[in-house]
Write a protein that binds this DNA or RNA. Sequence first.
DNA 1: GGGGTCATGTAATAGGTTACATGATTCT
DNA 2: AGAATCATGTAACCTATTACATGACCCC
Lengths: 200, 200
Amino acid sequence: MTDKRKVTNPLGLAVLSYLSQEPMHPYALGRALREHGDARSIKYSPGSLYMVVGQLARAGLVAEHATGREGQRPEHTVYALTDAGRRELRDWLRELVGQPRHEYPALVAALAFVSALPPGEVSELLTARLDVLSRQRAEITGLITDSLARGVPELFLLEEEYRLGLLDAEYGFVQRLIARMADPATNWITLWADHHNDNR
Amino acid sequence: MTDKRKVTNPLGLAVLSYLSQEPMHPYALGRALREHGDARSIKYSPGSLYMVVGQLARAGLVAEHATGREGQRPEHTVYALTDAGRRELRDWLRELVGQPRHEYPALVAALAFVSALPPGEVSELLTARLDVLSRQRAEITGLITDSLARGVPELFLLEEEYRLGLLDAEYGFVQRLIARMADPATNWITLWADHHNDNR
DNA sequence: GGGGTCATGTAATAGGTTACATGATTCT
DNA sequence: AGAATCATGTAACCTATTACATGACCCC
């Protein structure tokens, strides 16, 4: 039903999306990604771009469109979306929007094993985390208001609004967790300590 | 400051954690992961376990402890945590708990390029998503109440509670997004349509 | 005593990241 | 005119996933 996709790297989605507007060469794609701030949404390293474009080409989703040059710079290969690529872009987006997929946030993994740290330290660390989360929150809201001020329509800020929602949820969870740990009614402390003294 | 870690795969964290309780061989680690339901927190495929254990061994974080066998089954190598491994486990957890790291949820990427789909379809897809999210929510709450009933302390369910928080945040965001799209005061429709008719 | 499943891995392949290379422009 | 940065990639290396192999044990 799923995972039939030839290219799974989300960077491929970005490439398909940009190429759906006009043919471009890989370097220009990189520039576009940088300038549009897509690095916040998609993990992007300059090397992986060429790899992904290569994969897309082998999969028949993009094809060489022309080869050009500007000034005396090296020649570059311009790629264009194929019909299959256009279909793949739509289909991929449909899947991503319509069906949530199981994810693995780092904090989930950390919480699963956090009892290996002494509880006092965990409280401190969580408090430090709240601090960073606040700064991240300010960064996002700043970015949103700046963009709106510069005339960017809300439609193109949805991903940051979503991220903000996740961040607030995390903030709340961490806050409540700290409170629970400090609450004497919480009987974890003994449990946790046991776990630590017990050396079997 | 970061990324000095020799092993970055979160599965390595799980291995360090289990080995901090007692020496085990890779297959037993796999069994423990399965039985403890850690697959929900950490991406785990049977092949990667051996790879990660190999990496940990090369990094000096675990070492061969003995080689044993049970019945006439093939011999297996039992690994134990080294002192460096114990330090690494603590240090890694400290980092994960104390410092949120930038993440890339699939929906963030999707939202960044969602305007490549026609708006009507997006509404439908989002509605379908809500449905799946409800089911996932029921699954998590079921798992939590079952575990509590079986006597598992809350301390060992934190990761599911966190996940629940994220899920609720996503649910709310998607709901509001659907509502905004349906609201006639939202002027995206034209913008979106323009983007679609415009073929430049 | 033959067919499944469990136990224990190895090998092949594909994916992704990092480092490096090379010539053009631009800055001071 | 030399230094820094931009443009355009290539190559090497490490990570991760998938497929496969082999013998025990277990069930009927």
